[in-house]
Amino acid sequence: MIPAIEVKQVYKNYGPVVALVGIDLEIEQGEFFALLGPNGAGKTTLINVLAGLTLPSNGVAKIMGHDVAKNYREARRIVGVVPQELVFDPFFSVRETLSIQSGYYGLRNNDAWIDEILHHLGLRDKENANMRTLSGGMKRRVLVAQALVHKPPVIILDEPTAGVDVELRRSLWGFIKRLNRDGHTIVLTTHYLDEAEELCGRIAMLKKGEIVALDSTKNLINNVSGYLIRLRLSSETLPSDLQPLLESYAEGCFILKVNNYSKIESVLAALRIEQIRVLEMELMQPDLEDVFVKIMGNTKNMGSV
């Protein structure tokens, strides 16, 4: 099957600023994919290259096999992009904006689908309001709607939930999940890591223009962190056997790191031998945030060595 997105050795610099350094990435059709990274990592630049908004300094990007530079018309027909910046045309109302956007794709009678999008994005009662009069979050919803007017097989959302209230976030992701079930490929960026963890099957982490991690969400969480156990004990000191596992000690609690569940057994055994009682115990599942902090931290150290 042709990959939904294929990026090969893409470089981009803005004068002396290097935004992308040899990005290689392949995203299969039907994936729910996240691009994560700190501010300035290059996420938006990569998306702009895919959208044809920025020409790469070097390298090739393809959407469903169509080169975004050479076959730009085909590529742009297939992709829908929600830009990060809140942009709008102050001359038009919400519905006018969406009909014009449909028209650019050659869609004349798109009202049924526009109605559906408006409904799912909670914009029904604003459809005749001028864009200028909308609140920030409402404008963001219109941006999402504009990206969807042509039912693009590949949907790219650059921080679609920035500045959007909880209720809409839920209904937006519900809608996007449904589109994903119907076969649309979804690529998103977000700084809310719990969102990415919950929604995305695979994640790429970018740092300073490079991909520093690329794996399924599950593997990233499993491999990188292990588990942490928080223990409050009847003793002030930890048995010497367990010292190597100690991550930190805070507020009377020992935090131990174990690689898998079976290791918990041996921790408890070691305590029993020393006749130390467990007063309190909590198993802490690592989450994407731990992974993120760890990966971003690690590579920073590597860089400074």
């Binding site: 959208a51 018309r73 992009v81 830009p83 910046e85 942009v87 709008f88 045309d89 956007q101």
Partner: peptide
């Protein structure tokens, strides 16, 4: 449209 940024809607479209 360049300064407001809304030119992206034209640049994103398949218009030649």
């Amino acid at each position: 449209s360049k300064i407001s940024g809304s030119i992206v809607f034209i640049l994103l479209s398949p218009l030649s």
